[in-house]
């Protein structure tokens, strides 16, 4: 997943958005690149996030007012998914009878 960290101008050209736009998004903390010296360094996730913001803005007509709400919900969704995955991994590590009990509960089956 690592990939190479890219400069602001490289990413702006690659994605087709102005460096000023990206800088504004960093200021609003919509994008949180690592820093290399005093310059931002964008990894794959940052670049995909910039594409996502661009899509949301241009294709989905989400404006600057609504954007933080949408990004917050997307981030919460991924956090929830990450936690659910952790939980499922924990369940997978249990002996089978416990797994069965939990999975039954999840499916809404009642205790006999």
């Amino acid at each position: 997943m690592g990939g190479m960290n890219r400069s602001l101008h490289y990413v702006a050209a690659e994605i087709g958005v102005t460096a000023e736009d990206i800088s504004g998004w960093i200021e609003r903390r919509w994008v949180l690149p690592a820093r290399s010296g005093d310059k931002p360094a964008f990894d794959d996730a940052d670049r995909a996030r910039i594409r996502m913001i661009l899509d949301f803005h241009r294709d989905l007509a989400i404006d600057d007012e609504a954007m933080p709400v949408v990004l917050d919900l997307v981030d919460r969704l991924h956090a929830a998914r990450a936690q659910l995955r952790t939980l499922l991994e924990a369940v997978a590590g249990l002996p089978e009878p416990e797994q069965t009990v939990i999975l039954r509960k999840v499916r809404g089956e009642t205790e006999q």
Partner: peptide, 30 residues
Amino acid sequence: RADSSFYRSHAGGPQGARYRANAGFDPSDL
């Protein structure tokens, strides 16, 4: 577009962690 260009391909991984944390999300909250 390649699948990997969508944010969702990165969001669940280690690189996405800072954005999940940025959501002010504590596991116990969830």
